[in-house]
Design a protein around this nucleic acid. Structure first.
Length: 580
RNA sequence: GCGCCCGUAGCUCAGUGGAUAGAGCGUCUGCCUCCGGAGCAGAAGGUCGUAGGUUCGAAUCCUAUCGGGCGCACCA
């Protein structure tokens, strides 16, 4: 646990205390409404908000609060109708820097300790290559895993891969009839080979009724545990998982073989799910299918929209599987919070799944289940991102594109990297470009995939932040001093103070991200840190400071900046190299 | 028809009910004997889709409306 009290929290506490002094007891808990300000270090607007309730002019409340704040050491001026402009003494700023400097957690409290969060994300399909549609779930889900874990939550990752269903009957039958078709053991190409075979099987399935019949029989064989069929299925799953793990490793996604939670795992539970829903009167039969309804959800004809748990043919809908995941996650994993990082277009589905689970009593009020929706990745034409020929874009190709673009940028500049170093940098910056571009947009909005913009070295990009980090690291390397001793009696330059106050907000930012599940807030914060640092860097020489004490204070700011950027980027799943 | 998401600078986007709405790109003007110029300082550029309402105060909350995207029975 951190012992650092943020300057912001100190100011907030002081204003609260002052308000309590000035206001009648029943208004003691009023929000002090403290914000950063361009007119002072902070502004507090709490007086304005409560003046009416207190029956006193806002200006009078503000004046009295200002008086109190002076006595607790904050230079405070009233302005306008009752704004308080608060200036923090330089000594307080330096003391906070000193405290944070010795804290491995940089002032971030483990405020989510004791909370168990299950996060369902990524979810690729067996026998298919990962494509652009898996990018956002994987990247956003992973960032949320990292942030929540860092705040002390007990996070359980779940990768709900599509490893079951009628399509495997088709594929296995096709493989059986084409023993010459090779796909195994081709390394990175295994999945493309499988993908091709899968498509060929589908064509055959649609064109050849006899093959379709044999495929259906093969589904039955798979479901009833026929040894030869199951063996092929296991091969398909194992090879696919290896391929997924390779992509995760390349992208820097935490998911690994312990996180697979495929649909097949729930297969045995599905009949029970349906029976119980029917027995509890939650589900009813409709058109031969077993379905549930959610109040107020209607189709264009004005009829209720069903959630199909069992299809007319006896197969299970994915509603059934999703219900099964909830039950397991509540009962076995003891989740306090269950997150589904899934495309926004699934919103209605999840609304109905959660509603059904509540009706069935599988999702108690104490457990918070939440769909974490995200927008679509678009091409430059504003339509969902496809290749020129209209096919889905492979994730591996996206990464190649980004790395090639980074390589082009680097080669256009002077650098002294060896070829090996260069390929490392290209990889690190290329993945940063893609991930940061995805994370820095408001989660729920669509965004346009634009490689050139992503690898831009200016503006709010991953590469720019990595550069900012490398530059601070360079200063610290050159200094060689042990960072640690601060002189809190030195005056703080405006740029030093601004940087310190920006660094001060790290804890609040992460808390905000954990509450809203919006990683773009962390991106915006890190960009603020980087720009505050460059202003400081322009205005305040570090290695050539006027005195050893000034140099030490500035090195401390550099050290905190570097660690805050590195930690923040890491929480986004992005590497922070020492050189770039 | 109902529901969800989105309309903010020429473009791409930030913006927890607070004062004069901010960045980046692009355009224009300055700044390199100086720690990494992938930078900094400044200028220009806005009916925050529109109209009402709540509020001391609205880009932000509420209602209506216009525009765009998406979803709504057996694919997952």
């Amino acid at each position: 646990m951190t012992d650092v009290v943020a300057i912001f929290a100190q100011v907030e506490a002081a204003v609260s205390a002052a308000l309590a002094q000035v206001l009648p007891a029943e208004l003691a808990g009023t929000d002090p409404v403290v914000r950063r300000s361009d007119r002072a270090d902070f502004q507090a607007n709490g007086a304005l908000a409560v003046a009416k309730k207190a029956g006193v002019p806002a200006h009078a409340v503000a004046t009295d609060v200002a008086q109190e704040l002076w006595s607790s050491g904050f230079k405070t001026l009233c302005s306008g109708p009752g704004f308080l402009n608060i200036t923090v003494p330089d000594g307080v700023v330096w003391s906070a820097v000193a405290a944070r400097l010795t804290d491995a957690r940089l002032g971030v409290a483990a405020r989510r300790a004791g909370e168990r969060v299950v996060i369902d994300y990524s979810a690729p399909n067996v026998a298919k290559e990962m494509h652009v549609g898996h990018l956002r779930s994987s990247v956003i889900g992973d960032a949320l895993v990292r942030v929540l874990s860092h705040l002390g939550a007990d996070v359980v990752r779940q990768n709900h891969i599509g490893d079951w269903g009628t399509q495997f009957g088709m594929l296995i039958q096709y493989l059986d009839e084409h023993p010459d078709a090779s796909w195994k053991g081709q390394g990175a190409e295994t999945m493309s080979a499988l993908d091709v075979l899968y498509k060929a099987a589908r064509v055959e399935f649609e064109a050849n009724p006899a093959f379709a019949d044999r495929s259906r029989s093969r589904v039955v064989a798979l479901q009833s545990g026929d040894e030869a069929t199951v063996a092929v299925w296991r091969d398909l799953v194992a090879e696919s998982e290896r391929a997924f793990e390779a992509i995760y490793a390349r992208l820097g996604i935490l998911l690994d073989d312990g996180d697979f939670d495929g649909e097949s795992r729930y297969n045995d539970a599905l009949p029970g799910i349906v029976e119980e829903l029917v027995a509890k009167g939650v589900a009813t039969e409709s058109d031969g299918a077993v379905v549930t309804f959610t109040e107020g959800v209607l189709n264009p004809d004005g009829d209720p929209v069903p959630l199909i748990v069992r299809k007319k043919d006896g197969g299970f809908g994915y509603g059934a599987t999703d219900l099964a995941t909830i039950r397991l996650r509540v009962e076995e994993y003891k989740a306090d919070r269950i997150l589904y990082v899934v495309d926004a277009r699934q919103a209605l589905h999840f609304k109905m799944v959660f509603d059904t689970a509540r009706q069935a009593g599988w999702l108690p009020e104490s457990v918070h289940a939440q769909h974490v929706p995200f927008g679509t990745v678009l091409g430059k034409d504003g339509r969902p991102f496809k290749t020129r020929s209209g096919k889905t874009v492979r994730l591996a190709d996206l990464l190649d594109d980004a790395e090639n673009a980074v390589r082009a940028v680097l080669e256009a500049r002077e650098h002294d990297f060896t070829p090996d170093e260069l390929s490392v940098v290209v990889h690190v910056a290329g993945t940063a470009a893609i991930k940061y571009a995805d994370l820095s947009n408001t989660r729920t909005k669509d965004y346009v995939f634009d490689v050139d913009q992503m690898v831009a070295t200016t503006g709010n990009t991953g590469v720019y932040l990595q550069y900012a980090h490398a530059r601070v690291a360079s200063i610290l390397r050159k200094a060689g001093d042990a960072v640690g001793h601060l002189d809190a009696t030195l005056p703080a330059h405006a740029a030093e103070k601004d940087l310190a106050l920006t660094l001060d907000a790290f804890d609040a930012t992460l808390r905000d991200v954990a509450e809203t599940l919006e990683p773009h807030r962390l991106c915006g914060y890190l960009y603020d840190v980087a720009t505050a640092f460059t202003r400081f860097y322009e205005a305040c020489p570090v290695l050539k400071a006027d005195s050893p004490a000034e140099r030490a204070n500035r090195l401390a700011l550099c050290d905190l900046t570097r660690r805050t950027l590195a930690t923040g980027l890491d929480l986004l799943g992005i590497a922070a190299p020492e050189r770039l």
